[in-house]
Amino acid sequence: MRLWTLALVALALLVGASCLVGVADLFGGDLDTQMVLMVSRLPRTFAALLAGAGLALAGVVVQMSVQNRLVEPGLVGTPESAMLGLLVVTLLAPGAALMVKMSVAAVAAMTGTLGFLWLARHVPRRDPVLLPLVGLIYGGIIGAAVLWMAWTADLVQYLGVWQSGEFSGVLRGRYELLWIVAVVAGLLWLAADRITMLGLGEDAARSLGLDYRQALLVGLVLVAVTVSVVVVSVGSIPFVGLVVPNVVSRWRGDNLRRNLPVVAWLGGCLVLACDILGRLIRYPYEIPAGTVFAVLGAGLFLWLLHAAPRRAHG
């Protein structure tokens, strides 16, 4: 109970800070305060919370699916595949509605992640670091194809937007797609036991009566949708899906029925905090939240590796 209170207080403080911090001075008098809040600050706050929560949840699902704690969607080629889908649809149907582009991106992300899972079946399991390395190369290859395509089609500037998670462009009317993440989070909570069982391994999960393929597929669809929504609306943020689930797992174990809300909360709060920091570090200029998180996340990740290298896979 006390934990929930603390969590809510932290969230409220961050939301408050996010509403107050920015170039436009809310109390300067010559601005319509309400309009700044409704059009810019609140949407930006929601966007950071939703993107962070979504990526953290996607990280848990990927880690459980391949039974390896050192992977996240960004390390298994999911965002690169989503970008490939986006590029293709932008080239073939430049005028397509955002929802259509998002759907194509989700299907591409799904296919790319399935490709990684297929690869993962052939990677020896003994060394837990091998799988993320394979994922890094796999994502790198897809990323290279994406860059080449964007280069030849003169669309490289789009790539920059999709690759670096950044919230300064978020305005009312341009981020609402991210609420899909909230829906996905609800669905994931319904599937929490199934995802936890994936983490017990294929034999154990099937022996317990789980339809393993179905659970895996449901998890992957939700990951693909989340990552695509985030890539399309604010750009991908690396490390969130890696660091947050690891911290929560250390702290509270892995029963997802209990932990998914904590994962979502921590992911949202951390990304929002990074966004606020990014607004302050070089005030009045901004540093993308993705960049701030990459620095923070890399530090946290090194600490995690150092703290228990033996336990990296379990």
């Binding site: 880690q63 391994g201 009566g209 379990g314």
Partner: peptide
């Protein structure tokens, strides 16, 4: 058999459980 029905007839404990889930 469907998975849940199967699991009410036989419980298998496979070799070398590689467990990622930190469960109690």
């Amino acid at each position: 058999a469907r998975p849940p029905e199967r699991a009410r007839h036989v419980a298998l404990l496979a070799q070398d459980e590689r467990v990622t889930a930190r469960l109690t």
